[in-house]
Nucleic acid binder design. Sequence first.
DNA 1: AAATTATTGGGTGTTTTCACGGTATTTTAT
DNA 2: ATAAAATACCGTGAAAACACCCAATAATTT
Lengths: 220, 220
Amino acid sequence: MSNQQYIKVLIADDQQVFRKGLSALLNEMPGIELLGEAGNGAELIEKSLLLKPNVIVTDIKMPILDGVSATRELLKHIPACKVIALSAYANDQLILQMLESGAIGYLLKSAEAIEIKEAIEMVNLHKPYFCKEITQKLTEIVAKNYKLPDKSTASFTERELEIIRLICNEFTSKEIAGQLHLSKRTVEGHRTRILEKIGAKSIAGIITYALSVGIYKNNR
Amino acid sequence: MSNQQYIKVLIADDQQVFRKGLSALLNEMPGIELLGEAGNGAELIEKSLLLKPNVIVTDIKMPILDGVSATRELLKHIPACKVIALSAYANDQLILQMLESGAIGYLLKSAEAIEIKEAIEMVNLHKPYFCKEITQKLTEIVAKNYKLPDKSTASFTERELEIIRLICNEFTSKEIAGQLHLSKRTVEGHRTRILEKIGAKSIAGIITYALSVGIYKNNR
DNA sequence: AAATTATTGGGTGTTTTCACGGTATTTTAT
DNA sequence: ATAAAATACCGTGAAAACACCCAATAATTT
């Protein structure tokens, strides 16, 4: 029936040459219908609302309105649209911003035609697509935030970990003492040891340490 | 010179049929030398120490010692070894455990020969390799845990953000006052406002909040 | 022009944190 | 078996945090 034969694509990039190159490539691809081009984020939003593309391929750095902001904005109006972000290089902040904005694809500008096609087809099925470099970055980001709890946590006793978690949850020594059925002074003693071990001088240090190392989530 | 022509691979899986199938496939692949097979984690450790493989492809669920534990253990002794984990399905916990154990590759058991080969070659260069499904999961995990500064950060004034960052760095009100050339009382006033806005009752709340929404970055 | 918000500063007082002393029992490791 | 941790507990006191109250000036918005 209304099963769409072509994936309707809109592209955005401030560099005219790159834009022309990309549009030429996409025009040659079977199964893809290029709806148009935009030179900045504002134009992208405008044309998107008008043309209702299935997939948008957009540069991140653009004048007037960048790709991330444009994506965030236009997905409010046409959430069915799938966005692939393009960037010259893999940057942590950009990747995270992109994820947060709602884009589900990320390619480097060095990508080849076949990969771009693959990405378009993939995201059109609502499946994320990331090029190898981005995948690697994602791994690093996840590993950085999940790997740590090990060695560092090891130096604390169970009691100490328990108290650290409670401190992170805004409980005072007195409250912690009540919860654990201990004396207030005992809890203070433990906290002193914790401060020593961490090398912190206040609970601020305890918390930044605990969060950076991954204690806190009762995980294990 | 001692540039190795073959990637030496060791595999582990408790299902004999799968193991045989995998070893048959790997044996046919040019550039790969299959060193042997293991039926469980303990056996994997044993043979790894003996055979010193470049790459290990191991199932996660195995009797006696599972793949994650085995990986963690054997990487202590032969850290140069690259581990690819195999699993029947993509599970958040498994992926995180795998990352934490030190494996740098993750494939589903439904993977095809060409992908397995690609993964082996990739991890052998110390580059992570994840199949599409896992990449997708990684994306979800990252997206879930990175709620970037949004509505939350926007509600703070510049001064407040400045003070939040200093609080996160273990400075007292007096110290902050000194650094910003303000009165101690002014800083305390700002902090009170910050507590109100966040709905926290102590600096513990300020810090957990700040770290969770990503204020704090410029100082590391 | 008027209202709101940001930024600055103050007073008073309670609670909490933390440094500096300790002691005693239990559990774990060598 | 003996040493070493871990756990529990206490006193004192200074400094910090926090809870209330308050007001003046600058900047921004309406």
